[in-house]
Simulated scan of single mutants.
Amino acid sequence: MKKILFSILVLTTSVAAIAQQQNLSNSTKPIHAEEPPVDGYTVKTDIENRKVVPYANIRQTDVAYQKRVWREIDLREKLNKAFASPKSRLIDILINAVMNGELTAYDPTPSENDPNGDSFKNVLPTDQVMARFGGDSVLVEEYNENNEVISSRYESRTFSGENIVKFRIKEDWIFDKQRSVFEPRIIGIAPLITPQIPGMESTAGMNTSGDAGYDPFDPFAVQPEQQEVTNSDVALPVQDNSFTPQVDPTPAFWIYFPEARHILVNKEVVNRNNDATGLSYDDVFIKRMFASYIVKESNPEDLRIKDYIANDVERLYESERIKKTLMDWEQDLWSY
C-alpha cells in the first residue's frame, strides 16, 4: 500500500514539474511551446472566472426611505482616470458588449411611454447604436482634374471612445429597515455625447488649428496635433459677438446596470499605483470608487438642477447640498 501511495506521489510531482516546464517564464532552458508564452510570472484568471455577487433582497414593506438621484461622472477628474484608460476603457467595454448582443441598449429619446427617456422602455436597435456616435463608416469621394466627383465609396472606420468624457448614472438611495442599512443601488448608466445641431458651426472655445475635416464632436475623428506657438504667431484675441448656442451633453443610450454587472465583473480596472489590485468595474461601482456630482434629484416638478440654477458654481453647491441632505438623513436616524 505504501508503494502505491509513493508511486502516486511521484507521478503527481512529475506531472506538476512537466506542467511548470511548459511555462516559459519558469523554465531554465529554451522550450519550443505550441502556445504563446505567458506574459509575466502569474496568470490573472480570477477576474475572468468571477461571478456577480447578488444584492441583498429588499422587500417593499421594508423600504422606509427612498430617494432617486442622477449623477454625472467626468473622466477628466483624477479619480476617474481609470475609466478612460486605453487598456480597459469603459465605453469600449459597453460598445463591444452591445454589438456582440451581450447587453441591451435602450433608446434615451423621450416618448409617450417614457417621458424622460431613461426608464428602459424602448430598445435601441444595434444598427442605430453606432449612428449615435457618428456612424461606423465614412463616405470617400474621388475627384478628377476638374474637381468633379467621379466615384464614391464607403469605408469602415474603427470606433474610438477617446472623446467620451462623461457618463450619467441613475440610482436609488434606499434605507432597508429590516437590515438597518442605507445604501445606493445603481439602476442605469449612459455615455454622454454632444449632439450636432444647426448653428454649431461656430468653433468658439474649441480647437481652431485649421485642420480641414476635423469634427470635435466625432468620436471617430483623429484629433489634430498641437503645434507650438512662437512669439511671432501670437495674435490678440478677436472679439466675437456672435451668438453660440449652448448644447448640453445627452445620453447616447442607456444600459440597465443589473444586466451590465455580468459583463463588468470580468473586466479589470487599471490601477496607477498597483497592478495586482484585482478590482473589476463591478467592484468600482459597488464600492463607489469614483468621483461624481449630482445633476438631478427626484422632485414633484421633475426639474434638473440647471433648470432652477443658472450659475455653474452654484450648481455644484446645490449638488453638494443634496449629497449632504442624504448623509444627514442617515446620521439623524441614529441620533439620540
Rank of each mutant, 00 (worst) to 15 (best):
P300W: 02
K323N: 10
T230S: 13
I263R: 05
I305S: 03
D74W: 03
L5A: 13
N113Q: 15
D39G: 04
V98G: 00
D248Y: 08
L316Q: 10
P184G: 03
F217Y: 12
E228W: 06
S119A: 08
D92F: 01
K177I: 02
Y154E: 14
P224Y: 06
R304N: 10
T104W: 05
A190C: 04
S137K: 11
I197K: 11
L303S: 03
V269T: 13
R288W: 06
L24H: 08
P86W: 08
E318W: 02
P115W: 08
V10W: 10
E102Y: 04
I174D: 00
T12L: 15
L103S: 02
Y214T: 10
R50C: 02
N116W: 07
Q246L: 14
E155M: 00
S180P: 00
E35K: 14
D46K: 12
A17I: 15
V222M: 09
D233T: 06
V43T: 06
L124S: 12
F167Y: 13
K2H: 12
S88P: 00
I286R: 11
N299K: 07
L90S: 00
A19K: 07
E145N: 13
P191K: 02
Y281G: 08
I263Y: 01
Q21K: 05
E102Q: 15
F285R: 07
V265C: 05
L303H: 01
I187K: 12
R315E: 09
I286T: 09
E142L: 05
V140P: 07
T208R: 15
S27G: 01
L79Y: 04
S14C: 15
S202D: 15
T158M: 12
I150Q: 07
T325E: 15
Q226A: 04
R59L: 10
K166N: 07
D211M: 13
E183K: 15
I309H: 00
F217R: 15
D92R: 04
N146P: 02
A212E: 13
V149D: 09
T250L: 09
H32Y: 08
E72C: 04
Y281R: 09
N57S: 14
N273G: 05
K267F: 00
E141W: 01
Q21I: 09
T12I: 14
E318K: 13
A310L: 14
L316S: 08
P300C: 02
P245F: 11
D282W: 01
D62S: 13
V229E: 06
N207V: 02
W254Q: 06
Y281P: 10
I164S: 05
A17Y: 07
